[in-house]
Amino acid sequence: MLLLFFFLGPAVIVYSIFSVYPLIATMSLSTFTSDSSGALHFVGLENYRLLLMDKDWREPFWNAFLNNIWFFIIHMAVQNPIGIAIAGLLSLPHLKFRGTYRTLIFTPTMLSVVIIGFSWNLILSPLWGISEGFLKFFGLGAFFQPWLGLESSALITIGLISVWQFVGIPLMLIYAALLNVPSELVDAARIDGLSHMRIFFSVKLPLIAPTIGLVSILTFVGNFNAFDLVYSIKGALAGPNFSTDLLGTFFYRTFFGNQLQLGSPTMGATIATAMFLIILIGVCIYLYGIQRRLERHSF
């Protein structure tokens, strides 16, 4: 008993106090409102009604929510296929320079989102002109636009920057899973006369389906929690005209306030709780809907 406390105590205590308790306290805070003196009053679900119905809250909330869904779709449609494709290529037998490619492609993942955000901000800026020059070199100069500054393209651009940075994670997880597919299985398929392409799609891919599921849910959680990239490129206002606003920046703005409004801890807590519920629903769909159906193979 004492032994258990010795081993488990530190982790459980730190984790409970600084992770679980704040989460619960935040949820409970979302059922209060504060008056001008700062005193809290219990209001039940009133904050949620405000968030979903009130005109001043509803629009930014749905805007951020839909943007977030877009952000997620961009990752699922671009990041994960690229990750799978590169992992598939890297796991081909007899490939040279495998380690070098792996190291290079994983590099952006190691760097701070803030640094990456600023760097891309500069690179894509019409002031520097480096992107325009680059496109001109390929005769595509006419296509250049200040993508990050346009309402129509800012979110997609930020999404692609995020993909560029984080493609390393699905890449590595899937690569690791592919390495775990026993080579005898691949050898057997080759003796059966299957091409590498066929082997990848009909032997390896089905076997690593659970990993692809895991990658998807990690992407989901990461996306619905994203903040740093938008904040570092666009600031808390997530311009132009909130077109890059995600739930994370919306939460931050609501809590801290900004030029346009005062900060509100209770509404912030409400948004945080809403984000929690969204993530929870996603995780439950994954755990009960998807993961269960994916057979796990042990070799």
Binding site: V20, P22, A25, T26, V221, T273, I279
Partner: peptide, 16 residues
């Protein structure tokens, strides 16, 4: 804690 980001509790963490 693997699935739920600790950031969501930020307000209470700050108060604490």
């Amino acid at each position: 804690g693997i699935m739920v980001p600790i950031r969501l509790g930020s307000i209470s963490i700050l108060h604490m």
